[in-house]
């Protein structure tokens, strides 16, 4: 166990999110072993790994939805362990789940209203400028949206309130290449203000936008690549 002092010392070079020695289990079965991760403001960090490696588990734990058995998560000088997910979200760290489920009984407008309600941020300009498509869908029920539109809505309602870190779980899963291309630009645009932690299987996307890549294998962070050159040249393929 590190003392709080050294934990904060680790944040000297202005990291916004530091995960240290995180262990997570579901009941008896342990899924995450001593995971470490750090993110600087505005940085795009990707996590890659096979199905079942524990990527979702990692993001959910950071978002406060799972209780780790040990370890610490420091976000913006606060230890997040034990804080409820809604408070974490309000502090500016939001998790966008993998399941692509928007509230199907609510319209797009109402979905966005809920994002605004929580954060008191009613500036929808930034959402509609990133996703012009949503403007024409405002009164459609979430349940009738296509997969791509849902992903746009999920990201759109999450960026209300200008979060400092977005955790995005497999955003391009099952989406057409043109939409993936669009999302890539969105992520580049977003990263001007927000740090992104993206779990992704689409390596060309990962290689194009990430400043740092973590490879996760069977619940362990096996490699960290922070050298842009090797990331751009597709080195992470071997970990998938």
């Amino acid at each position: 166990m590190m003392s709080p002092h050294t934990e904060f010392a680790a944040m000297n070079n202005s990291e916004i999110l530091v995960v240290k020695d995180l262990n997570v289990s579901y009941g008896e079965s342990k899924v995450l072993f001593d995971a470490n991760l750090s993110v600087k403001p505005g940085q795009v960090v990707s996590c890659v790994g096979r199905n079942g490696a524990g990527k979702t588990t990692l993001l959910k734990t950071i978002g406060g939805f799972l209780k780790p058995t040990s370890g610490s998560i420091i976000f913006n000088h606060t230890n997040l362990i034990g804080i409820r997910p809604y408070d974490i979200a309000r502090m500016g760290l939001k998790y966008i789940p993998q399941d692509k489920r928007v509230f199907s009984d609510l319209t797009v407008r109402e979905n966005l209203e809920l994002g605004s309600y929580a954060t008191r941020d009613y500036n929808w300009e930034q959402v509609t400028s990133l996703f012009p498509r949503l403007k024409s869908l405002m009164d459609h029920k979430g349940g009738y949206l296509s997969g791509g539109e849902r992903q746009m809505l999920m990201i759109g309602r999450a960026i209300l309130g200008n979060p400092k870190v977005l955790l995005i779980d497999e955003p391009t899963e099952g989406l057409a290449p043109s939409i993936v291309e669009q999302l890539k630009n969105v992520f580049k645009e977003l990263s001007k203000k927000t740090a992104l932690v993206i779990v992704e299987q689409n390596l060309s996307l990962v290689c194009a936008i990430s400043a740092k890549v973590y490879a996760i294998k069977e619940g362990r962070v096996v490699t960290e690549i922070s050298d842009e050159e090797s990331i751009r040249s597709n080195i992470c393929e071997q970990y998938l």
């Binding site: 997910p85 809604y86 979200a89 309000r90 928007v102 509230f103 809920l114």
Partner: peptide, 13 residues
Amino acid sequence: EDVEHVEGLGINV
């Protein structure tokens, strides 16, 4: 529909 998503938006469920 989904409590976790509501919580994820920052609403005190």
